[in-house]
Design a protein around this nucleic acid. Structure first.
Length: 489
RNA sequence: GGCGGCGUAGCCAAGCGGCUAAGGCACUGGUCUGCAAAACCAUGAUUCAGCGGUUCAAAUCCGCUCGCCGCCUCCA
């Protein structure tokens, strides 16, 4: 059973097989480093983190390259504003990026090349294109001759004629054709620049990915990924450059993820409706953001709202509570106890892995995979609540194995990775800080209330409970005593 | 104007030609409880934006209409 992936190039879901058996070569467009990252960047990093983790779970070797664009117009402009160098600015925000990624628990790619460290490779590639007459130099700039690449537009499904009709194309008298795009830009005075056969200048945006992917992954590799906004022009142009230079297919499979939206509009700086990763992580546990991001399939738009985050948190807590209950089970079983799990329950719980993989094999359908986790938790809760004191061996084994399986599978999405009791305790402690009552006070009041309850003094008992409720503390009277929790809004 | 995507219960979200249209949140009833909370059980779309068509069979394929979104300029 192979993984099926939606390929932007063919607009179909296709079974995926790497060129080299057992070894996947993946290139993903990373950030342009000039500002803090927002949730959209988080979605990109997390989507590919999940994809790589899933491939590795399936025992593939994955070589994962994600670049940093550390020179471009925006970086130059921002550096000038801040009176600093492009290098300092780019490196500063790369450091900030790592802070966010580490908090989110995103695994590092195999390599993270920077554009400015691959100038020579880009110059070499541009020279090859000029030699083949696919590119031309003009006044210190170098342009790609779009019209000479017959398949131009095949990735984004555009035809040159259509684009020219309605496009806002900058007038540039250096270009032979308005659709030609820049490979090398002559530098203006004071701008960062590198020596080249065409004079001092700097690379265009698209060429870096062609040069770096070729260096680290070869002329043809398995998967190239990025956000849907990169399909055109970035990936279209990359493809055109690389295939023109090598005369080989550039990439077999193109993966593009959807946007994060707010009130159904794309999150973007120009609209001012973006939230940074650190904004979110100051209010929510990183796993809540991960849970939220994986609550829909990666290609669909994902609408951000506080309500959706609360929803994600509730769902994550539910899974943690289920695991905590199983882990809190007395770890000795009894030969006296009867088996509670039905044949149907056993089937459900022994097929978790299979059902989860089936979901993931269908174009990384994390939404469906989360459904498998919830269904499993429900069955486990059902069994757990019926166990009286000690489980029988078969139930004990079934539940502990199921919990371990869920934790393992959830690690692909990077959720449920904390010890369940610690996660729940930490959450309680964090929420306790927000209300004006200490744990000691709560425990004291519970003690008083239980005393009243022993005397069947219900009015006093309820009065104490209401007093705690005023502080958002909910009580739960169980067989082993009275517990408390913070009430959700 | 060109290209692409989406429209499934109050909300989120699976479904990719054929088993009762997953799952979560919310709501309601029940079990449990002194009363609650949590958990569990039960309950909700004769129907998948609308209209036609293909098929023995369509939410799933095709066409048209309506609505929303994205790309065509930097953008995850």
């Amino acid at each position: 059973m192979s993984v099926k992936i939606y390929n932007t190039l063919t607009r179909k879901k296709e079974p995926f097989h790497p060129l080299e058996k057992g070894h996947i070569k993946l290139y993903v467009c990373g950030i342009t480093s000039y500002d803090y990252c927002h949730i959209g960047h988080a979605r990109s990093a997390l989507a590919f983190d999940m994809i790589v983790r899933y491939f590795r779970y399936l025992d593939y070797k994955v070589t994962y390259i994600r670049n940093f664009t550390d020179i471009d117009d925006k970086i130059i402009a921002r550096a000038a504003e801040q009176n600093t160098s492009t290098e300092e600015l780019a490196n500063r925000f790369i450091d900030e990026f790592y802070i966010d990624m580490d908090k989110l628990g995103v695994d590092r790619p195999t390599m993270e090349p920077k554009a400015t460290e691959h100038i020579q490779e880009m110059i070499d590639l541009i020279s090859e294109l000029i030699d083949k007459d696919m590119a031309y130099a003009a006044n210190g700039d170098v342009y790609y001759r779009v019209g000479s690449f017959a398949e131009y537009g095949k990735l984004s499904g555009r035809r040159l004629e259509d684009m020219q009709a309605g496009a806002r194309i900058q007038i540039n008298e250096n270009k032979d054709d308005p659709m030609d795009f820049v490979l090398w830009k002559a530098s203006k005075p004071g701008e960062p620049n590198w020596k080249s056969p065409w004079g001092d200048g700097r690379p265009g945006w698209h060429i870096e990915c062609s040069a770096m992917s070729r260096k680290y992954l070869g002329d043809t590799f398995d998967i190239h990924g990025g956000g849907q906004d990169l399909i055109f022009p970035h990936h279209e142009n990359e493809l055109a450059q690389s295939e023109a230079a090598t005369s080989k297919p550039y990439v077999n499979m193109w993966i593009h993820h959807g946007f994060v939206t707010i009130r159904d509009e794309k999150m973007s700086k120009s609209l001012g409706n973006f939230l940074t990763i650190r904004d979110i992580l100051s209010h929510y546990h990183p796993e809540v953001l991960r849970f939220f991001i994986f609550s829909t399939q990666y290609r669909n738009p994902l609408d951000f709202s506080e309500e959706a985050m609360q929803n994600a948190m509730t769902g994550l807590d539910r899974l943690y509570e289920c695991i905590a209950t199983v882990e809190g089970m007395r770890d000795d079983f009894s030969t006296q106890s009867k088996q509670i799990a039905s044949a149907k329950d056993i089937t459900k719980l022994t097929s978790i892995k299979e059902r989860f993989q089936k979901a993931m094999n269908n174009d990384f359908n994390t939404a469906l995979a989360q459904g498998v986790l919830f269904e499993s938790a429900k069955v486990m809760n059902k069994i757990s609540r019926q166990i009286d004191k000690q489980p029988c061996q078969s139930d004990y084994d079934l539940l502990t194995t199921a919990a371990a399986t869920i934790i393992k599978l959830a690690s692909i999405m990077g959720i449920l990775q904390e010890k369940a009791d610690k996660y729940l305790a930490a959450k309680k402690a964090a929420m306790l800080e927000q209300i004006e009552i200490s744990e000691d006070e709560i425990l004291q009041l519970i003690k008083e209330r239980n005393h009243a309850r022993d005397e069947k003094n219900w009015s006093q008992s309820d009065e104490i409970r209401d007093r705690l409720l005023a502080h958002n503390i909910e009580l739960n009277d169980g067989a082993t005593g009275t517990g408390w929790s913070i009430k959700k809004d």
